[in-house]
């Protein structure tokens, strides 16, 4: 099921542009056709539990993009020096070092988010996308391409994470970016302390159409993330019937 996309190495003799067609494809494909979550089914483990709010999800997505990109770059740089038998350990050490950097940085600059993400930061190490891209791409390709491929896959992962988080937070809490400096209150009953864009307590106007609205508690449960991803997969495969697997 976890089909990895083995992009064949293009052998071009003349000097290539730094950011040509191949790089663009590497960067954009993971957003749709080879998306790490919905198509390759990698990396679901570490992060679904953080998607109940958008802000920690964005932080998580940035962390994964960073780790994915740079671990691909470093692995690709040393790829010819790694003995085949111990390559897993070498890859894990590279990833673990980068994740430690992320963890310490967060601990220093944003302690509340560090507390909130707790063990899930450490779990980026065993995030299958990072390891999967190292095995499938970085071990066989030049550093720059590997770096772009890692970034692309990290972004493809982050996009799904943020889509899920946006849906869960709007319907589950009625807010966006809660806990961050740019919190937006979308829907709910306004009172003296908080005002919402759609005020369900309003006597008249647009907000009054939503009188009696309550937040959907299902969306706060971890299970909601599974439903949303299931539906995202459904939508994507309805548009691309070739992606359907029969098992």
């Amino acid at each position: 099921m976890a089909e990895t996309t083995a992009t064949p190495e293009v052998t071009v003799k003349e000097k290539e542009p730094l950011f040509g067609k191949a790089e663009k494809k590497l960067l954009l494909d993971p957003l749709g056709d080879t998306n790490p979550i919905t198509i390759q089914v990698l990396g679901i483990c570490s992060a679904l539990a953080v998607t109940s709010l958008v802000y920690p999800s964005v932080v998580m997505a940035i962390a994964v993009v960073f780790v994915c990109g740079f671990s691909s770059l470093f692995t690709s740089l040393v790829r010819n020096k790694i003995p085949k038998q111990v390559r897993m350990i070498v890859q894990l050490v590279i990833i673990a070092t980068l994740v430690t950097i992320v963890e310490l940085t967060l601990k220093r600059f944003n302690y509340p988010i560090y507390k909130q993400l707790s063990v899930y930061i450490g779990l980026i190490i065993t995030n299958c996308i990072v390891m999967g891209r190292l095995e499938a791409y970085a071990m066989a390709n030049r550093p720059w391409r590997a770096f772009v491929d890692g970034l692309g896959n990290g972004v493809g992962y982050g996009v799904i994470l943020i889509i899920v988080a946006v849906i869960r937070e709007i319907f589950g809490k009625g807010t966006l970016f809660a806990g961050s400096p740019i919190q937006i209150n979308i829907i709910g009953a306004s009172n003296n302390e908080v005002g919402y864009l759609i005020n369900t307590a309003a006597e008249s106007g647009f907000g009054s159409l939503f009188a009696g609205y309550t937040n959907n508690n299902l969306m706060v449960l971890p299970a909601a993330a599974m439903f949303i991803i299931g539906v995202l997969i459904w939508i994507q495969r309805s548009y691309r019937p070739t992606l359907v697997d029969v098992s």
Binding site: M226, I235, R237, S247
Partner: peptide
């Protein structure tokens, strides 16, 4: 539904 077969269904079942 065909598009939901396999993976999509596995996600919803897990939920």
């Amino acid at each position: 539904p065909p598009a939901l077969r396999g993976l999509g269904m596995a996600f919803i079942l897990t939920g």
